[in-house]
Design a protein around this nucleic acid. Structure first.
Lengths: 207, 207
DNA sequence: TGTACATCAGTGAACGCGCGTTCACTGATGTAC
DNA sequence: TGTACATCAGTGAACGCGCGTTCACTGATGTAC
């Protein structure tokens, strides 16, 4: 009955990754409040001093968990872009929906991602990773401009606006500012994300 | 040299408000990490048991601090709307700038506002208050539609998009995702907020 | 192939700290007569 | 106006808890000869 039929290895093998995964489990089941070294070690099945063999301190473990989140988000966005190679608008809408759904599905993980990256100097790799979505937005926008679908202008500025919209919607939903009206909050969120991105693309001013 | 020449009143007079203000001071000087009952009491100049005469527990004090933030934000937005009674676009841009500047000026207070409102049922007043900006957006948008400046459509949907953009930019800036390139980050943020809102209003699709 | 030793991952007990909260108290305020 | 008493805001000592971190250790692994 031991997990995955491993006979509880003496030296565990890959505790570092196991700790990160345990951290994700803790975030999913207990939220940020439960994310502490002792609980993560408990879930990973090791003593609470063991993590110090792999992480300098708690902050380092949290940073690794955040890093994992950005990699997952990046992978999800790549997948969606590959699957939606139609117009720029459709791609941007799909990316927005993917982003918001990720935030809702892994809400506490998402929170950790954006509260532990505060220092661009001390953790440059993590900071760079946190911009993954932004860079993919720029690419999609540039392509849309080249194809003539989108208005001309600095794609970075456009990407800032779209990222702000996507991220803002994600954060507001995660923070329960738009309580779901039906029993499928994820579908609602996806629809809202689609509407928001489309509205940004179309504008609000009467021509 | 006693603060405001008060001779240290025996019964303090208005400790409840003093505790909220002490909380703001703590947030400004030490951030969220320093926001605990004992420190707030210390800053307010009372024993750490005194707050329990006015708040049931720590959560209640934090909720009061959040409430104060929403009232301040609402007041700032009202002021800006009153001062900018020109076109709908100009009003919406000014509101976005006001919102983002508020978030940056009182960043940890802003964080507290949007992390303590999670329960719409248990704290209905606070939840209602948290929508103040949203409701003002709806009003401005409706007015813009009536005047013919804005495209027709559900103003609530438009407001969701604009709020998401404003809030997202605010959160990303607070979380250092757009590190300032000059020495006046507030001015930069104001400019970015103006650009973002204007971009949302104008759209990105080629007509 | 076998032995001796260095290396290193994980253990468990312990430390110290700060926190939220409680509780018997003290001292000031307000009110009834 | 003055006195007695109830009320209530603030005190300070104390409790208990969970946390991050340290440290001497143990047990497994790898390597040199």
């Amino acid at each position: 009955m031991a997990r995955k039929a491993e006979p509880k290895p003496y030296h565990h093998g890959d505790l570092r990754n196991a700790l990160v995964e345990a951290g994700l489990k803790v975030l999913a089941e207990q939220g940020i409040a439960g994310l502490n070294l002792r609980e993560v070690a408990r879930v990973a099945g090791v003593s609470h001093a063991a993590p110090y063999r792999h992480f300098a301190d708690k902050e380092a473990l949290v940073a690794a968990i955040a890093e994992d989140g950005f990699r997952q988000l990046q992978a999800a966005l790549r997948k969606v872009v590959a699957k939606t190679p139609r117009t720029a608008s459709q791609q941007l809408v799909a990316m927005g929906q993917c982003y918001v759904l990720f935030a809702l599905k892994y809400s506490d993980h998402f929170r950790v991602m954006f509260t532990s990256t505060r220092d661009a100097e001390t953790q440059p790799e993590l900071y760079a990773l946190s911009k993954c979505g932004f860079l993919m937005l720029i690419d999609a926008i540039s392509a849309g401009q080249t194809s003539g679908a989108l208005v001309a202008g600095d794609p970075t500025d456009f990407a800032k606006t779209l990222w702000a919209t996507m991220h803002g919607l994600a954060v507001l939903l995660v923070d329960q500012q738009f309580p779901p009206t039906t029993k499928s909050p994820l579908k609602e969120a996806e629809a809202m994300a689609g509407q928001c991105v489309q509205r940004v693309l179309q504008g609000m001013i009467r021509p």
